[in-house]
Every structure is written in C-alpha cells, then in structure tokens.
Simulated assay, not measured.
Amino acid sequence: MSATANEAFAASGKNSEKSSKSDQGKNPDKATVKRLRPPAAKSVGWALVQAARLHRSRVGDRLAALDLFAGQEQVVQALAAAGSMTMGDLAATLRVRPPTASKTISRLAALGFVERRAEAGDGRIVRVRLTETGLAKAAAIERIWDEVEAELLEGFDNKERRRLRKLLRRVARSLAEAAGVTGHEADHEMDADGEPDDDEAEALLGPAAADAVATTP
C-alpha cells in the first residue's frame, strides 16, 4: 500500500471514530425512550386507568376493615338494591361474565354475607340475596362510597358531576359492547333523582333552564 493510500486509510478511520463518538453523544435511544413514554398527556384511557386505580385503592383501604376486597362491594351493593337476583342478572348488572360473578358469590357466601336459594318452581334457577350480616355490610359500604365520592368530586359543581357521570357511562357501554358483555343500563340514563341528563334537559328546557337544573343542589 502506498504512503498516500496509508494516509487516506488512517484519516478514514479517525473520521469513523469521531462519527461513532458523535452518535453516542446524541443518545441513539432517544426515539425509543419517546415511544415508551406513558401517554398521560393525550390518552383518555391512561387517565381513566390512573383515576380508577387510585379510586380502587382508596375504597380498598376502607373495605379491608369490613373483610372485603375492592370489587366485592359492588356485588353487595347490587344485591342490596335489588333484594335478590339470579346469577345471570347479577353478572349483567355488573358487566362481568357469569363465571366471574359466580366466584365472587362463592367467596361472599363463605363469609356469610350472601345466601343462594333455588327458584321456587324451577330448581335450575338460583337466586342470590344478602344475609343480615350482608345487609349490615351494605350500609357500611354505602358510607365508604360516600366518603370516597366526596374526595373524588372535590371542586366539581353539580353540572360537571352529571356530565362526568354520563361520559363514564358511555365509556363503560362502549367497552362492554366491544367485549360482548351486556348490561341493564338504558341508552338514555336518568339521574338518581329522576331528572334528565344535561343534553336531555337542554333539549327540553333550553340552555339557561338546563343550567339552572344542573346547578340546583
């Protein structure tokens, strides 16, 4: 190899080394890090998961004193409201699959909170209801939910609360339909006090009257 060729080869090696060091300084993993960054700023799902996780934690801390786990209280609440339910109705109300509802009922029955009885006239149908102990738990659960609800909605006015409730129902309905799980909620939900939601009130009464309804305690 000639002297000129040797010099050119050496220069090429030095340039390659400089280029490699330069690339390392530019952090070649930057694009990967950006891709893996949690979508907190833009993702509704991410925000929903974080809120649900924190809510579940707050409720769960209080439920532990009642010998219940987060999620079981929803079964107790549903039975307290209905009096008694078939397993199919319970699963549909909670938007879960029947085997999931059955496992939860078995655990609650072992704790003495619920009891199962065959339907009169048709032993193939099993109805579930709360025991006296379960009813006492239901009252305690309601107090816990009221406490966490107050924390959850701190700073929200009545109209914002109604709007948030409606939007979350729509989210649950969309996900349930995608998963093939059906429930008993109607497409046009009414609030617990029997008043129409914001969109229905505005359609019936006009914007000003709807605002007045939404802000009434």
Rank of each mutant, 00 (worst) to 15 (best):
A51W: 02
R173I: 03
E149Y: 15
T104A: 13
G206E: 06
P196M: 02
D197F: 01
A10G: 06
N6H: 08
A210F: 03
H184Y: 06
A70M: 03
K26L: 06
H55I: 07
E115C: 02
G45C: 06
N15Y: 07
K159R: 15
A109P: 00
T100P: 00
G194Q: 03
T131L: 04
A179N: 12
K30S: 13
A179P: 00
S2F: 03
R127V: 14
M85H: 07
D146T: 13
T4D: 14
E200L: 09
G25H: 05
D146W: 00
M190W: 06
S102Y: 05
A82Y: 04
G25W: 00
S19Y: 02
R37L: 07
N6P: 00
A110V: 04
G13I: 11
L79K: 04
A10F: 11
E17S: 10
R62C: 00
S174A: 12
D146R: 14
L36N: 12
S106E: 12
R163K: 10
H184R: 10
N27W: 03
E149H: 14
G183A: 06
L164Q: 07
E200A: 15
L63C: 08
A3F: 03
G183M: 03
L48E: 12
R124A: 09
L90E: 09
T86A: 08
G83R: 09
G180F: 10
E17M: 11
T104S: 07
G155A: 13
F9M: 11
F113C: 06
L152R: 15
T215Q: 09
D211L: 09
D187P: 02
K21A: 10
K137W: 03
E142D: 11
G25F: 05
R116A: 09
